[in-house]
């Protein structure tokens, strides 16, 4: 239980990252690759948030009186991840539009069959 208490978030974050990397490494379908990319993205975000966590901390919002600043979690990673999520969706939309374009041109989403981007 102590192990879970300490490491469960790390396991989740790195599990996502490695599964995403595995998708990127082995799959050939463009949209599958993009899904893998978004999973890696989520995993990294989770990891960054884990870094700023404080045991038994509260969210960094002074919504009522009597909140102790000492016990608040670190707000900096949260702000960064907020940025990261929005940029992630922008990149994803861009990548998908390219995939659609490639599909219209080659009639396939399979990386192996799109020969012209190879040497």
């Amino acid at each position: 239980m102590d192990f879970l208490n300490n490491y469960i978030f790390y396991i989740g974050a790195f599990g996502l990252i490695f599964i995403g990397l595995y998708i990127l490494l082995t799959r050939k379908n463009l949209i599958k690759l993009i899904i893998g990319l978004s999973i890696v993205d989520t995993g990294v975000n989770l990891l960054i948030i884990c870094m700023g966590y404080l045991k038994n901390g509260t969210a960094p919002i002074f919504s009522r009186k009597g909140l102790n600043p000492e016990t608040m979690v670190d707000p900096t990673p949260q702000a960064l991840v907020l940025t990261s999520i929005v940029i992630g969706v922008a990149v994803l939309a861009m990548a998908l539009s390219l995939a659609i374009r490639l599909y219209q041109h080659y009639g396939t989403l399979d990386m192996r069959k799109i020969k012209e981007q190879k040497w």
């Binding site: 990397l21 990127l24 490494l25 050939k28 690759l33 040497w119």
Partner: peptide
């Protein structure tokens, strides 16, 4: 050296990993 850039995304990820 140029042939390292084989046009296959998976291979690029392999390089990184």
């Amino acid at each position: 050296v140029r042939r390292l850039y084989c046009g296959d995304l998976g291979v690029y990820v392999i390089y990184i990993v």
